[in-house]
Amino acid sequence: MTTPMTSMERVLCSLSHNEPDRVPLFLLLSLYGARESGLSPKEYFSKPDNVVKYQLFMKEKYRNDCFYTFSYAAAETEAWGGEVLFPAEGPPNAGKPVFTIDGIDRLYVPDIQQVPSLMRVLEVTKQLATKAKGEIPIIGVVMSPFSLPVMQLGFETYLQLLYFDQPRFIQLMKINKQFCQTWANAQLEAGATAICYFNPLCSTDIIEKSLYLSTGYPVDRATIAAIKGPVATHLASGRVVPIVNEIIETGSQILGVGIDESVDLIEKKTKGKITLLGNLNGVEMPNWSEETASDKVREVIQQAAPGGGFILSDSHGEIPWQVPEKVLISISDAVEEYGYYPV
């Protein structure tokens, strides 16, 4: 009997477009740790020890193949002086926009050492790296320079900037790019294995391709090139097919896919060029029965896993608080049942 692969070996094998012992499972459990701990999201994320303890706990409980150091997207806006709103049982939200379009003229790159929420993530990463001993991938997260302004300026104001004020858009991208690459590389230095680069705005669901190619795409290419480790581009449920070749050309090694497109179709378009991550419907998961969870896992594995180059995950980049434990356990059980190669 062969020895099972470690999570790291399994993932690296899949990234090289070969078949590992079984399909890797990335349950992206961030906020869910707060639910497991019984603490409020605010309390939970306030101490790195909480996050480390429950990352380790959830890795075992759900037979997960990664640690996920992501806290909440709005943590990055704290670097710019933004407020974070903490609900009792849901993801923290960015508060009011942090600056106006005029304010871009006076903007500078924040020092991450001065941002407690980011320093806590680095501490979590360091502690998990010690525990992982190189056998478990640690996934860090950044917001792309092109998508971050939704929280910095507000969505409407950002669209006005994008369409009508190119000089200030370019200035903001220059600052955000510097911040993003510094933040990503700090996480890699702390022990992260790869960076999940959240970029929902590059989806043609949000910005038309022609506009993206002339605005955000050059920024994304340059930023990803400056990140000193593997990058997973994630569109947080947005459609990827119309820009999949451009994403591949950024050098991203992994692509998060949503539910509006067939993973089978994307797999055919990208075979051998990028590893797919997805695409269980996280929004539906709270209502899934154990049987439904199992059926969904089997279906996605059969469509996308043959030949490797596939990691099973959710479609959005985070498991919602409301998903019952039994559903997550059923997902893990189904991976054990249907995920061993040959699938």
């Binding site: 669209l159 994008l162 369409y163 669901d205």
Partner: peptide
């Protein structure tokens, strides 16, 4: 937008 041929930004504008 629903069928993927236009963007949310275009709908908004």
């Amino acid at each position: 937008w629903e069928n993927g041929s236009m963007s949310l930004a275009q709908v908004y504008m």
